[in-house]
């Protein structure tokens, strides 16, 4: 497998330093940019496989960076943001970011996000016929769902929601993104439809909402499908906990 390149766009030198050390230890090639414009130029010159983007840059607003990049490049973006406001994260995700990590974060959390996003970029889940994780098996060609080999019946909307989550496993989907796809653009403010549907789907999947196995709530932002255990295969000692 060729070495994958990660571009870090972050104005804090300390954060760039520990990211570089950890990422290089995980055999990624790392390039750094301190400013947004610098980062965009680097992307154009040598397109990376993934961008880690700080939302609070001195020159460019994070949302602007994403919007400008998305005009010509689908390269995956993981956003770093401070906790202050979940609306920033939602805006970044809606603008085209693939996932986010809240500062301060543990390196294992970031590594897990990076692996999920890179794996999806390498072999898009959307093109797969079969999805399997923790006893859940979804045959996308036959529209068949089984839990521990026990077939379960889903309504059209429940299946749509599950399919959407499977298409980007481990990545967060905002409420609006789900509502737009499952119900259509006219209904993208009707979050209670979504809450009810998620409740029903969890119920059918035998998911305990207080300790969800499959559908994880990202408070104020959206939902993500739980990270399949198989993804952790290349975890290395230092960030195992």
């Amino acid at each position: 497998m060729p070495q994958e390149t990660i571009l870090i766009v972050e104005d804090e030198a300390q954060i760039r330093k520990f990211l570089r050390i950890s990422l290089e230890a995980h055999h990624y090639a790392v390039c750094e940019a301190r400013l947004g414009e610098e980062g965009l130029a680097l992307c154009a010159a040598r397109p990376p496989d993934l961008i880690i983007l700080d939302l609070g840059l001195p020159d460019l607003d994070g949302q602007q960076f994403i919007a400008r990049l998305r005009e010509w490049s689908p390269v995956p973006i993981i956003v770093l943001s401070v906790r202050a406001d979940e609306t920033d994260k939602v805006a970044a995700l809606d603008a085209g970011a693939n996932d986010y990590v809240t500062k301060p974060f543990g390196i294992s959390e970031l590594m897990a996000r990076i692996r999920v996003v890179l794996r999806d970029a390498r072999q898009p889940s959307a093109s797969q016929r079969l999805f399997e994780s923790q006893g859940l098996r979804v045959d996308l060609s036959q529209r068949e769902v089984t839990i521990d080999d026990r077939p379960i019946h889903l309504t059209k909307k429940e299946y749509e929601l599950l399919r959407l989550l499977i298409a980007a496993p481990g990545q967060v989907l905002t409420h609006q993104q789900i509502l737009r796809t499952v119900w259509g653009p006219a209904q993208q403010e009707e979050t209670h439809y979504l809450r009810v549907l998620v409740g029903q789907l969890r119920n059918k999947l035998g998911d305990d909402p207080a300790h969800p196995r499959f559908i994880i709530t990202v408070q104020g932002v959206g939902y993500r499908l739980a990270l399949p255990i198989a993804l952790d295969d290349n975890v290395q000692g230092s960030d195992a906990n």
Partner: peptide
């Protein structure tokens, strides 16, 4: 307040 419909289960799960 940015109110929205929220499942209490979700809130509890996130807090825990």
């Amino acid at each position: 307040l940015r109110r929205d419909w929220v499942d209490l289960h979700d809130i509890v799960a996130s807090a825990v």
